[in-house]
Design a binder for these strands. Structure first.
Lengths: 155, 155
DNA sequence: CTTGACCTTGGATTAAGCTCCAAGGTTATA
DNA sequence: TATAACCTTGGAGCTTAATCCAAGGTCAAG
């Protein structure tokens, strides 16, 4: 069992952050000491670990809470519902991975084009690198993102 | 040349967002009409495209501004400096890709374990899926095992 | 039995990234 | 020429995710 300060230190967080997660239902300590101190066990630590990893991959705390809620009320939720939610998040993740790989390739191109010497970086441009990138097969996604659903009436 | 509303619509943004990017130096329109309207050209659109993709991969606007600044003052910056910055971002990106792949595998495991039927989701737990995941490579620092399924004390 | 490091609460503040509003100027179309 | 749909500015307001503060309780060590 860890007190809040110990858990915070272990994951390089502020105690305030853990209290914030408690207040917002993301991570409630499995118990309290007789004096009211938050007491966290290993399962809590694992749950925190999940939260941190999901956060790192760009999910909002709300998204994360939704994913975690599957676990909490799993007896009340149908398997189909779980699958639907998870598959949705899975698609989001795949999209992010694709975007990151794209981005990575651009930067790698830039990095290797860049001599790395002390001379001026005239030919080192992120944008140049990305231009050559934009011809990577499918261009659609962003470039015409909204062409389908027209919103009108500015506000 | 596009007016702000056209560019906004093309990328499914609010005009306010483009004005925000202008004010904060991320994307200044290459020119203004005689009446003061912001006029964006294709290069501006490409720059915006870069911003949106970088944002999607979880970079802050500050990070993005830093990357883009390479382009602006490239004559004043050494190739070595560029390479250093780019390689740093590259490492960040690789880390994110690794975390996402990890996460993706967990969710895939969960999705396929999940029958998808109307029965209760007793065995569909994000946390269970992640536990079995923690044996993927380096386990040491953050994640501590937990041999098989079976946990969860409801508070 | 006091000191200092820890913990509690509620509420205020911060920073980022928009988003909205008011008051007014511009421009294409009827 | 008037109407509607655009645009301008500055500034206020919102959401998310913390982070800080004040006033006080807990607890092991000296």
């Amino acid at each position: 069992m860890y007190r809040i300060g110990e858990l915070a230190q272990r994951y390089a967080l502020k105690t305030d952050t853990l209290r914030f997660y408690d207040k917002h239902g993301l991570l409630k300590p499995s118990s309290r000491s007789q004096s009211g101190y938050r007491m966290y066990n290993e399962a809590d630590a694992e749950r925190l670990c999940f939260i941190l990893r999901a956060k790192e991959t760009g999910f909002s705390l709300t998204d994360i809470a939704e994913l975690l809620s599957i676990d909490l009320n799993k007896a009340n939720v149908s398997c189909a519902d779980v699958k639907e939610l998870v598959d949705l998040k899975l698609m989001e993740i795949k999209g992010k991975i694709a975007a990151l790989n794209n981005f990575k390739e651009s930067l790698q191109r830039l990095s290797s084009a860049c001599c790395g010497g002390p001379e001026s970086a005239e030919h080192c441009s992120i944008l140049e690198a990305l231009e050559s990138n934009s011809s990577t097969g499918k261009k659609s996604d962003l470039t015409n993102y909204s062409s389908q659903h027209h919103q009108h009436g500015q506000r």
